[in-house]
Nucleic acid binder design. Structure first.
Lengths: 194, 194
DNA sequence: TAACGAATGTGATCTACATCACGTAATCAA
DNA sequence: TTGATTACGTGATGTAGATCACATTCGTTA
């Protein structure tokens, strides 16, 4: 499916926009393509856009002083990604976003989002809905982190993103789960049929 | 400060409502008071309201099968609390909310919030803003969980809620940090002057 | 003011996972 | 095809924090 249709279908699930409204809405997005491994947002820079994934897979992640990486999100088609803390507060990025595969994404600037939200009530409703979902998902993941062991979280992750299993290297899955790649490897091989 | 003024001041920081609009907005809230230890939301029941804290302190928490408690949030005055997953998805509560002290809160039903969001664009903007902040805070806490040791998270918590230190028993702080009360006790006493 | 339960402190032991070290397999670029 | 880089597996060892057990202090209520 092309970018415009994908976005339209995604938005239509939540709010009804007239064709003119959607055209206007869509006119604020810009198509961008990246190759596997390229960087979309990197730590320290200004962030003024968020991204809607059309094809491929992004990851957003934090890297600490000891160069350990923690993945906040894998963004598959119809998912949104950015450094929202930096975007909303107009501060420098503290997280990175890059491409796990070749990707096509639509970018929307913070100013344009806010303008669209002001101009079209339905658009504001859509973005409120979107953040609500993100908030609930984030709380759920936090709880799972506190409550469940690594194996359970690994199974949860595969249930949430079944496509990931073959799409991304295992050390990235470990970085999402917050464990070392060695631990994930042992875990994974322990439950294999022998 | 009385409930109405506190809510008005809180909302005014983000959006401008006319006096009539605010009166109308406020008319959908209901004052509720609880004693220390009473339950506001408990697991398994239907959830149809969210709460704005006027005075006192709530906690929202999850209890797992082994009866271990994990605190998602301490809600102080001007903070909002509910089981948002249950509220938004109209499912049964999986988390509990109860009172750490005597409290006064304002309740707003889900239906009324949605109605107000439809009727007054500014109100929708306010709630979008509120969820955005919650989302960013939740992501930040998740990262801290993955990246920092218990001591660092303990110091972060006290920086975020300085009032907590004397306001709540230490085993609740442990439940927020996701560690056992014994571990927190040792941590805390290790850094004491002798 | 007595007494009971809740909150806290602290030792001993156990365990999941990190870290380090090294080897092998797969992928990619020239 | 080959060399280099990246992904992955696995043993040995270290450690933060869990768990269990029990003592002590504090607060509430009768």
């Amino acid at each position: 499916m092309d970018a415009k249709s994908l976005l339209k279908e995604h938005v239509s699930k939540i709010v009804s926009l007239t064709d003119e409204q959607f055209e206007y809405f869509f006119s604020h997005f810009k198509t961008e393509t990246y190759k596997k491994g390229q960087t979309v947002i990197s730590e320290g820079q200004n962030v003024d856009k968020e991204y809607f994934v059309i094809s491929g897979c992004l990851k957003s992640f934090y890297v600490n002083d000891e160069v350990k990486m923690y993945i906040l999100q894998f963004a598959m088609p119809t998912w949104w990604a950015s450094d929202y803390a930096a975007l909303y507060n107009k501060t420098k990025a503290t997280i990175n976003v890059d491409c796990i595969s070749d990707v096509e994404i639509l970018s929307l600037s913070n100013d344009d989002r806010e303008k669209l939200c002001r101009e079209i009530h339905e658009v504001e409703h859509f973005f409120r809905w979107r953040t609500n979902r993100g908030y609930v998902a984030s709380q759920k993941r936090l709880l799972s982190f506190m409550n469940n062991d690594t194996k359970t979280r690994y199974e949860e992750l595969l249930a949430l993103y079944p496509a990931l299993y073959n799409a991304v290297p295992k050390h990235l899955i470990a970085a999402y789960l917050g464990v070392s790649r060695e631990t994930l490897s042992r875990l994974y091989n322990a439950s294999k049929p022998h």
